[in-house]
């Protein structure tokens, strides 16, 4: 049988992605909260679950729209329901990504990479965080770097690379001392734990991988 190679992201996949997000954040709620309990205020799991459950509720109204509109809807929902720092941050990510996807019902692999990079740029300027400050940025920067297409690439392969890179980035935050966000109030004591935002970023990418039509 001929294997199908997936090299683009269409609206239906984006909708499935968001559904998977709602599920995965529900499932990993306690794990995220436990990480946030160690270095923050123990609400990251609840924040992400609340946000994406709200997104799920909006999907019916969004599913026939273009990707830009879906991202925008996701962004607004996250911004207004997550509550913690991760709300405006992920919200800004999707808001910036939306502008590159306006009017499009499908994005090529290159476009996905460029679009997400724009989202990350927005996120980073919102949070004023750079790599090494023990935030989700530590997972997202290497991940989106790895997402860039290489020769004979598929979106699935690229996502596998991105997820691996995000995990590695997440692991690298364990010894770090937080410089941004609530965890930075702890100073040296924030070392020794993974940043919760990094885990939620890994989950976000894994949910997208899961949402790809299987070949």
């Amino acid at each position: 049988m001929e294997t199908m190679t997936v090299n683009s992201l269409d609206s239906a996949t984006v909708v499935r992605w968001m559904q998977h997000c709602a599920e995965t954040y529900q499932q990993h709620k306690d794990e995220l909260t436990a990480l946030d309990a160690a270095i923050g205020d123990a609400d990251h799991g609840a924040n992400m679950a609340r946000g994406f459950t709200a997104v799920q509720g909006k999907l019916d109204g969004l599913k026939d729209k273009d990707i830009g509109a879906i991202f925008k809807g996701v962004a607004m929902t996250l911004i207004s329901t997550v509550g913690g720092a991760s709300g405006p941050l992920y919200g800004t990510f999707f808001l910036q990504a939306a502008s590159g996807a306006n009017g499009k019902t499908s994005l090529t692999q290159e476009e996905v990479a460029a679009d997400f990079a724009a989202g990350l740029k927005g996120l980073m300027s919102r949070g004023k965080a750079v790599v090494g400050e023990k935030t989700m940025v530590d997972a997202l920067v290497p991940a989106l770097d790895a997402l860039k297409p290489v020769a004979n690439d598929t979106l699935a392969a690229a996502l596998d690379r991105a997820i691996a890179a995000a995990r590695k980035g997440a692991d690298s935050t364990v010894p770090m001392v937080a410089k941004k966000g609530r965890a930075s109030y702890l100073g040296e004591r924030s070392a020794g734990h993974m940043d919760p935002g990094c885990l939620s970023s890994v989950l976000l990418l894994e949910a997208l991988k899961q949402a790809l039509p299987s070949g």
């Binding site: 609840a46 609340r50 911004i79 207004s80 329901t81 997550v82 509550g83 709300g87 405006p88 919200g91």
Partner: peptide, 16 residues
Amino acid sequence: AGVGEEHRELGTDAVE
């Protein structure tokens, strides 16, 4: 101020 149902949870909402 607050998020979630009736804004009873801790958090902030940019739209609000």
